[in-house]
Write a protein that binds this DNA or RNA. Structure first.
Lengths: 235, 235
DNA sequence: TAGTGGTCTAGACCACGCA
DNA sequence: GCGTGGTCTAGACCACTAG
């Protein structure tokens, strides 16, 4: 058995669908018909068809059967890695510089960035990530000391705060905003001329309802792409 | 049985992992231990643990057991909607204009964009999506006639090609690239001054190994953000 | 109501990888 | 070696739902 049988069934049904042999809306054979065709048990067929259903290629309805789905594709999936591993995956040397660190009672702007209550205290960091000695990304981060009290005694001089937080504070949800922007205050730090467009990623992370951190990552547009390969999901 | 048992097992193990109770590297109980704990068969436990492995939360090794995986960096999920529904969700009036349409043997550049074989034919489209009468997004699309022969006889004068393709051609995977760019050729069409940064989304879609379509969407940066809220779980 | 998929069982054999 | 997970079987009962 070089290849699992359920995998072979899945691949053959998938090929029928992708070739157009079984067009959208077509009812594919019942499970018991596959068990006869492949001389196997129902569990094996079921596993193959469930994989196709998870992949969004078919829809299964009790009593009616399984049908080829009309492709949905409204939404997609993108992976966003943390900066250090991003640089590492490009096979370039990673460098990190802390530009500034401040501990303060949250200003009005801080409270808006991080959805904080009045009177909360934060650590504000600015740092630069380098690849092969060249500026790769500018990071502007707020950390809530309510969520991460240890951040108050951490200098962040040697290691970037992203990995530090990730290793300590469990998070349950995050919100991303991605946009293009003209390099403003970041231009000088990144060694850019003014008109250079940048890719800006804003991320707010929460543990339950409590805000943990907010970060603005600015990448020189020419030097960076978000890349992802993905498959349609269930939905 | 309101909830399948394998689902309950999956949820309880996932909770242990996300709470930090079982930290990265921790070996979780063997399948036979779960069968004792839940008084169920091995298949049921296996299904639950396979789901967690698919989601990237655990790694399973023969003889050794199953282990909590270290977080893969900050991998995340972002939804990318198609342009028409994007405009609709902003509660603005959607408009569509076909700028050009050509059918041709694939040029070298076309072949690179769409990973096509020599001698393939394509339909090349340029169109503009408007919101409340203002340019919202510029679309530059290639369609492989091998994958979508009907595109040869479709004018695309009234309806955007994205939805047309989605309704007809099933796809199994796609590749996205997102970057910031200075408005170049797109500037005039979008009614922009030259230095305006744009958010550029490139998407290549495949059915199995066969390329279907490639599209470059250019959004004026100030007018557009990708926004997503997500939770950790499936990678 | 009858037939489908969803779930589950109590076994089994095998491949792999750590000893 | 030997124990793990990977796969598979030949049944079973149940929930859902189209007819």
């Amino acid at each position: 058995m070089s290849e699992p049988l359920h995998e072979r069934i899945r691949a053959e049904v998938e090929a029928r669908i992708l070739s157009g042999d079984w067009p959208p809306g077509h009812r594919i054979p019942f499970e018991h018909e596959f068990t006869a065709q492949y001389a196997c048990s129902r569990m094996t067929v079921s596993k193959a068809l469930c994989e196709l259903a998870d992949a969004g290629l078919i829809e299964r309805r009790r009593k009616a059967g399984s049908f080829v789905r009309r492709p949905q594709g409204q939404s997609a999936v993108i992976e966003i890695h943390d900066v250090a591993s991003e640089v590492a995956s490009l096979d370039r040397a990673y460098g990190y510089t802390l530009l500034s660190r401040a501990r303060r009672r949250a200003t009005a702007q801080d409270r808006e960035r991080l959805a904080l209550a009045r009177g909360a205290t934060v650590v504000a960091l600015r740092c630069r990530h380098d690849a092969d000695g060249l500026p790769f990304c500018l990071e502007d981060r707020l950390i809530s000391l309510d969520a991460a009290p240890d951040a108050a005694s951490e200098s962040f001089a040697a290691d970037p705060p992203g990995a530090w937080l990730l290793a300590r504070i469990p998070w349950t949800s995050a919100e991303h905003r991605i946009r293009a922007e003209r390099a403003g205050a970041a231009a000088a730090t990144l060694g850019l001329g003014q008109p250079t467009p940048c890719l800006v990623i804003e991320r707010r992370t929460f543990a339950g309802e409590a805000p943990v951190t907010q970060v603005i990552l600015t990448y020189p547009g020419a030097a960076h792409e978000l890349i992802a390969r993905f498959s349609p999901g269930r939905d």
